[in-house]
Amino acid sequence: MSRNNLGGIVQQKGTRHLMMRTLLFLTLGVFCLYYLIPLIVMIATSLKSLEEIRAGSLLSLPQDVTFDAWAKAWSSACVGVRCDGLKPFFWNSVAMVVPAVTISTILGALNGYALTKWRFPGADIIFALILFGAFIPFQVILLPMARTLGVLGLAGTIPGLVLVHVIYGLAFTTLFFRNFFIGVSSGIIQAAQIDGAGFFGIFFRIVLPMSLPAVVVTVIWQYTQICNDFLFGIAFTVGDSNPVTVALNNVVNTSTGVKEYNVDMAAAIIAALPTLAVYVIAGAYFVRGLSAGAVKG
């Protein structure tokens, strides 16, 4: 996304130019601080002891670095009545994310392919109807979903939560793959058909290997969305089956005992790490997913 071919336009050099550049970098730097300070505060606070937090100030760096808060957040902080830390809830999130992302991505790829490369009458209308599902405020399906999970015997369970994420993630995954496949020449499909390949043969041997970038973008998008979800987690799970976001909120908003800000911050970082790590490793794809989600159609 970087632009290289305009860098060379000859410009008036001089003090004015220099001043503008200085101002530019100053402004960019100030905004870097704006975005980074909360992260720095979060990390610094998590490494301080409670006494140091009370005595020191928000922006001061920890004097005696201690990982006690981290240990406590991970394995002994109280979430509701249970005092095992975030650890069990973290694994809940993992158990939820892996199947939910895998299933919704595979189904999205298959559907995007069928809707674009094997066009049949009404495909556009079907796509529009499915796409609308990506935009509904989920409040409107909370009540019937809770009932349905109850009927299915999945209420308050992780498989139930996986089901919810797969269903409401499908609209997005289908959208991503449809947008990708629209750019794939139909000539390739026709050539493969002439060579005698069928619907699934073309999908697995030709289309899927080509769509690796779309797969990566979709997986990262779904992963971030599902990891960071709170609404479905709090509405459809109870206690032991909560995902880590819900547990974090419970840790922070628990009203019993002394407020341990350092543990709160450590817990927040632990909850943020899975998505933050993916962002740092695969930032480019993350950005592509964000803009793919933005520029529909």
Partner: peptide, 12 residues
């Protein structure tokens, strides 16, 4: 740096 907050959960 500008974009990383978007990767965080609103809860965080």
């Amino acid at each position: 740096i500008y974009l990383y907050p978007m990767a965080l959960s609103f809860i965080v």
